[in-house]
Amino acid sequence: MAILSTLEVCLEDGFVYAILAMGFYITFSILDFPDLSVEGTVLTGGVTCAVLAEMGVNPYVAMILAFVIGCLAGSVTGLLHVKLGIRPLLSGILVSTGLITVNLVAAVVGNGGSFSGDGALSNVTIARSSPTIFRVFPFTLLPETVAQVNLRKLVSFFVIALIVKLLLDAYLKTKSGLLLFATGDNAQFTTMLAKDPGSSKILGLALGNGLAALSGALIAQSRGNANQGMGLGMIVIGIASVIIGLSVFGKLRFMKPTTMVILGSVIYQACLGVASILGVPSAYNKLIMALLFTAALVLSGRLGRKKQEA
């Protein structure tokens, strides 16, 4: 039974983090922008969703708002980089650092506190009676658990990841989506099309962070709270999932990159699951993550070199 429940956790986390990873697919893979602001925006999404849930807002509205706020945070990263000429890594660090305060204040105020900002009650707990996607239509049509597997959670995460994937696929086929690829590949080309490559970058970063926030909103609903440590390690999870997915399945021409990213995310979580089955204490998780990330980077580097040799 331990294996079954581990598998369940791997799939659940795999789907939730796949949304985050699809965000990184836009910023890291398409735009070639290592976006560190995500560490802050995941939590911002979580806090937004948790606070709204406590106010009794419909969870789908809360998730859309979390997405929008994530987009705003991402545009700030983009503006810092494009308009002020700050390097990508630093722009991300600036935004994620600034968001620490934003998240704290939002959490405190969300808990009914004042702006004193002493950090008390920095966690927002979603009460058992507050609306989450597990407690409103349509996923309430599903039985909550089947054979001790939390079916409702698993299916809802899968469906939401799938919807995000389909929407993203559709978007990437539009003119605006194609321009995003062009900007990441060759910004000069975008300039030659009489379009500002900076605007395209800002748009991509907005979308990437919007998806990160959406993923944070789901995590908060699943855990029943948004706490200040939620963002830690998100960059590694996201980028590693993208790299694993694209390097393992990259040669399959029929498969869409977004599908590869989702599978990459599940594989990544499965590796962590295997470690836990083998009895590795969870304190080692972050170290394992870093090692997996290194392995993924080396693997993709090797594939890249092979391509060049061919």
Binding site: K173, T174, K175, L178
Partner: peptide
């Protein structure tokens, strides 16, 4: 404009 119309 590069909007949400079909790219190709």
């Amino acid at each position: 404009p590069f909007g949400l119309g079909r790219g190709v």
